[in-house]
C-alpha cells in the first residue's frame, strides 16, 4: 500500500456540459475497477473539488467498460462563454483528478503497469 496518484491505475478525460463538467475515469484492470468502486466515492470526489462551486456530484458506473462517469454540477461557473476561468470548459479537470493521491495496494500498481506495457 502506498500513496499514489490515481493515474497509476486509471486513465480518463473530461469535458463540459453547460455549467457542469463530466470526468470519465477508466481503470486499467478489472481489479482496479473493483478497488475504485470502493474508493472513488461521491464523498471523496466532493472533498477533492471542495473549493470549486460544485452543487452536486453524481457517480455513474459502467462495469462493462471498467469505467465511472462523474458529473460535477455547477463546477464551471456557468461554463463556456460566461465563466471567467481559463479552463472554462473543464478540459483540465480530468488531468487534475488523475493527480488525486489515494492509498493503492502494490499488486494493483503492478497489474496496471503490465497492462500499460
Amino acid at each position: 500500500m502506498s500513496l499514489q496518484p490515481l493515474r497509476k491505475i486509471a486513465y480518463g478525460r473530461s469535458g463540459d456540459k453547460g455549467g457542469s463538467c463530466n470526468i470519465g475515469v477508466i481503470a486499467f484492470t478489472e481489479n482496479g475497477y473493483l478497488f475504485l468502486h470502493k474508493t472513488l466515492t461521491v464523498k471523496i470526489v466532493k472533498l477533492f473539488f471542495l473549493k470549486f462551486p460544485v452543487t452536486k456530484v453524481i457517480r455513474y458506473e459502467l462495469h462493462n467498460l471498467l469505467a465511472f462517469n462523474f458529473i460535477l454540477e455547477g463546477i464551471l461557473d456557468g461554463g463556456g462563454s460566461r465563466s471567467l476561468r481559463i479552463d472554462s470548459q473543464g478540459k483540465a479537470l480530468g488531468q487534475a483528478f488523475l493527480e488525486m493521491k489515494i492509498e493503492i495496494p502494490d499488486e494493483l500498481l503492478k497489474e496496471a503497469e503490465l497492462f500499460i506495457k
Binding site: 478525460r13 469535458g15 456540459k17 470519465g24 477508466i26 459502467l62
Partner: peptide, 23 residues
C-alpha cells in the same frame, strides 16, 4: 473507451432525437 465517456451524462440514457441509448 476514453471518447465513449467524453461529455456524456447518465450512460444508461444517452438521449438523441433518434433513439435513447444505453451504454
Amino acid at each position: 473507451k476514453e471518447q465513449l465517456v467524453y461529455e456524456i451524462g447518465d450512460p444508461s440514457k444517452y438521449i438523441s432525437p433518434d433513439v435513447n441509448v444505453s451504454f
